[in-house]
Design a protein around this nucleic acid. Structure first.
Lengths: 136, 136
DNA sequence: CATAAAGTTAAAGTTAACTTTAAATATTAT
DNA sequence: ATAATATTTAAAGTTAACTTTAACTTTATG
């Protein structure tokens, strides 16, 4: 199957998407069980993913990469099926988002600490190496 | 027991430390089982933690906060018992550290993406809210 | 000094996030 | 048309990171 136009793809089978995102098909099904994605189905009942599903999965993976649980990720991005009508609903989401954004900023600060810790450990090793070199 | 001098503490029982770090004593024991900390013992065989153990635990928690596994954390900071003699040992650690630092930078970039995603979602909600307000 | 509170170990239990398996159906390639 | 390959579901199995429990021992307090 030749690529239509320079790698353009606008629908995927489960394993195509899995390959592209380097996760297993069963993980994708698992995320579906948890209510995080809801792909279309082909007439033969097989899952069919569009670009928006791919984007959604990328967000899920990004969230996972530093410790958000699937439930948290669900709260964060899981409003796909939200009716978006109720203003109050929106207000509630705003508050949630503000909290999450704050959390992200906190985590970034922690990453800075961590980098500092590692760098200072590295320097400790460096000094020790020089010490040993000197003695010889 | 009054504080010695303005909250100065240089040794802790397991539950004192647990309280301060807001984790359970059994988590601390669990980290010990995994070889991540090795506290002193009192004559009666109870664990006794010094400042360096507290610092170490903080690093463990920091690592955990964005998805490093305990094993990874162990590789990262677990060289407490390292003899620090072999230059080759040090070189190996250097490489490991460089890799980890790179990883941290990558994660920070991801946090930036995530924040952008959230902010754009938030704006979408904001627009929708205005739309609704207008219609009324 | 007696007893309550805190600590110890080893082992079993729990939860989240998957993975594997099995048995059936669908799609693709020859 | 048929054989090979991919998907589907439901259920069981796995792993990391804890937590709980049970049966004791040590330390603190009235």
């Amino acid at each position: 199957m030749a690529n239509r136009e320079l790698n353009q793809k606008n629908s995927y089978t489960i394993s195509e998407l899995a390959d592209e995102l380097e996760i297993s098909p069963s993980s994708i099904r698992f995320y579906e069980d948890k209510g995080l994605i809801r792909p279309q189905r082909t007439p033969g009942n097989q899952r069919l993913y569009m670009k928006k599903h791919r984007a959604r999965l990328k967000m899920i993976l990004r969230g996972k990469r530093f410790g958000f649980t699937l439930d948290e990720i669900g709260e964060m991005i899981g409003m796909e099926d939200m009716q978006m009508n109720e203003v109050e609903q929106i207000n509630r989401s705003q508050m949630f988002f503000d909290k999450k954004i704050e959390e992200i900023r906190y985590r970034r600060a922690e990453l800075d600490y961590m980098e500092k810790d590692l760098l200072s450990f590295k320097q400790k090793l460096e000094r020790r190496r020089k010490e040993l070199n000197h003695k010889k």
